[in-house]
């Protein structure tokens, strides 16, 4: 970080202070056009919720639940681990988790990028509706459950029931999945698609052309009730 950056940066403590106060200070600093460094995040819940675009926040240590939830464009960096629902319902922006992420990382997110350097817990990308999630490690069981759209990319493979009940969207695996979920199937990715995923990874310093990709998509059998005649639902 350059001297100018440092001058433009505000440092504050999370520790055991009221979270409302911490978030108010973060928001005030961002509104002022400053970057924020939050020291001693102490695994506190709800840090940096609903932050605006063109803002930068870094959390030192680990964070609790819903860090960067409802992100509206902020660039958020978490030094170590994140609890449940990191980046849930993010619309735009970028969140980087330096360590591991707990359950439901990126749940129902609609856009932006969530980058987890370690492993992610179960139900990573559950109900996601857009955007990209990159997990350098492995994603837990039921990851991508009922996702609608977007890409969930896991370099270390996946746990059980991967991509269960997908509506749409894609789960990209560069490692093995313990099992596929209901209504999920592996599809051979096209060259252009691979290029796009690799380009995204390369932009994160994770370029490696030697990966053996499996792309998991919806088999679309659950798109409709299994009824012999769909019209039969009409008459009762």
């Amino acid at each position: 970080m350059s001297a100018t950056d440092r001058a433009n940066r505000i440092e504050l403590q999370a520790a055991d202070r009221p979270i409302r106060e911490v978030n108010d200070e973060i928001r005030a600093a961002l509104a002022d056009g400053r970057e924020v460094l939050v020291r001693d995040a102490r695994s506190r819940h709800n840090l940096g919720v609903g932050l605006p675009s063109a803002s930068r926040v870094r959390f030192e240590g680990s964070v609790g639940y819903y860090c960067g939830g409802l992100n509206d464009g902020a660039m958020i960096e978490i030094e170590r681990n994140a609890g449940w629902g990191v980046g849930e319902a993010m619309a735009r922006g970028e969140i980087v988790v330096g360590g591991y992420a707990g359950m439901a990382a990126g749940a129902s997110m609609r856009g932006g990028l969530l980058h987890i350097r370690g492993d992610a817990g179960p139900r990573c990308g559950v109900a996601m509706k857009g955007g990209d999630i990159i997990v350098e490690g492995r994603i837990g069981y039921l990851s991508g459950f009922m996702a609608h759209a977007g890409r969930l990319i896991a370099l270390g493979g996946a746990g059980e029931a991967c991509a269960d009940s997908l509506w749409g969207g894609e789960v990209w695996l560069a490692g093995p999945a313990e099992s596929l979920g209901v209504d999920a199937r592996i599809e051979e990715p096209g060259a252009e698609e691979v290029e796009s995923v690799e380009a995204l990874l390369a932009s994160r310093g994770l370029g490696d052309s030697g990966r053996d990709w499996r792309k998991v998509v919806s088999e679309q059998r659950l798109w409709h009730f299994e009824s012999r005649d769909a019209k039969a639902w009409l008459m009762i």
């Binding site: 978030n23 709800n46 849930e88 749940a107 139900r123 109900a127």
Partner: peptide, 20 residues
């Protein structure tokens, strides 16, 4: 997708308060 029991719900409600 991101909370299960009452303790998590409590955190979720706080998140919504923070967001609004």
């Amino acid at each position: 997708p991101d909370f299960l029991g009452a303790d998590d719900l409590q955190v979720k409600i706080e998140e919504l308060r923070e967001a609004t």
